[in-house]
């Protein structure tokens, strides 16, 4: 019998505990597949965020350090500078990376830290129960924008790839999406390329993945994917924002 689909070695043999329809599971899998494809599992250290992925060490089959909220790029910097021969990835949500951890991500990118950032943007705080994120869209209702996000009252959403692309330490930044199989395949390629660049010591790499949060968006998984496509794609344009080649 031919095996056509199996669990990546870089994932532990446990079920995910994420909500139904959440895209964290598929993103974890893509990260694990990238690690396996480069044969670097035993040399890879992950840094998990504060947020839904805080328990990433329960799922990834490699060393993982759990960082304080937003500090993952600093923690990864400390590890990478101590072990330059190892490969580091941070796994961060939008609140973690683009609100409380803004200084850490900007300066890790500016220094050209040889780390790979997996940035999961679902336009909301998941773990704390659906508050406004820095990436929440205008008009989007959340626990803390019950009348919809208003530009004057709540500020405007941050586009992280566009924000970081001007920094010379960046080797590769791409925004991808997870809303259908075609885009998942593109995301898979992008994640692998980011790790490949780290192996080649090219500089800072970040992949932003547009993602869903059915529980806090108050939608079914299918409705969520459609909402992402219709609302997030127009504001968060997919594509390569920087690639030094």
């Amino acid at each position: 019998m031919k095996v056509v689909f199996e669990r990546p070695e870089a994932l532990q043999n446990v079920p995910f505990t994420y909500c139904a329809g959440c895209t964290h599971g598929i993103i974890h899998r893509m990260v694990a597949e990238a690690i396996d494809s480069l044969g670097i599992r035993e040399k890879t250290i992950g840094v998990s965020p504060v947020g839904c992925a805080v328990f990433a060490y329960d799922f990834f089959n490699c060393d993982v350090v759990a960082a304080a909220h937003g500090r993952a790029p600093a923690v990864a910097t400390g590890i990478k500078r101590s072990h330059p021969d190892k490969y580091l990835f941070t796994y961060q949500g939008d609140g973690d990376l683009a609100a409380i951890g803004t200084a850490e991500i900007v300066h890790a990118a500016a220094r050209g830290e040889r780390i790979t950032v997996i940035f999961v943007n679902n336009a909301i705080y998941g773990m704390t129960g659906g508050q406004m994120a820095p990436t929440t869209l205008l008009g989007q209702k959340t626990d803390t924008t019950p009348y919809g996000r208003d530009a004057r009252a709540n500020g405007l959403p941050i586009r992280v790839c566009e924000l970081l692309q001007s920094l010379d330490g960046v080797a590769y930044i791409e925004r991808v999406s997870t809303h259908d199989p075609k885009h998942v395949l593109q995301a898979q390629k992008a994640i692998k390329k980011a790790f490949q660049y780290q192996v080649e010591d090219k500089g800072f790499t970040l992949i932003e993945l547009l993602s869903t949060c059915p529980s806090n968006w108050g939608m079914t998984p299918v409705e969520s994917l459609k909402w992402l496509e219709e609302n997030m794609l127009p504001y968060y344009k997919l594509g390569v924002y920087k690639d030094i080649g």
Binding site: V47, G78, I79, K86
Partner: peptide, 10 residues
């Protein structure tokens, strides 16, 4: 937090 990372790595 860099100290945290370095210390965590031994």
């Amino acid at each position: 937090n860099m100290v945290y990372g370095a210390a965590a790595s031994g």
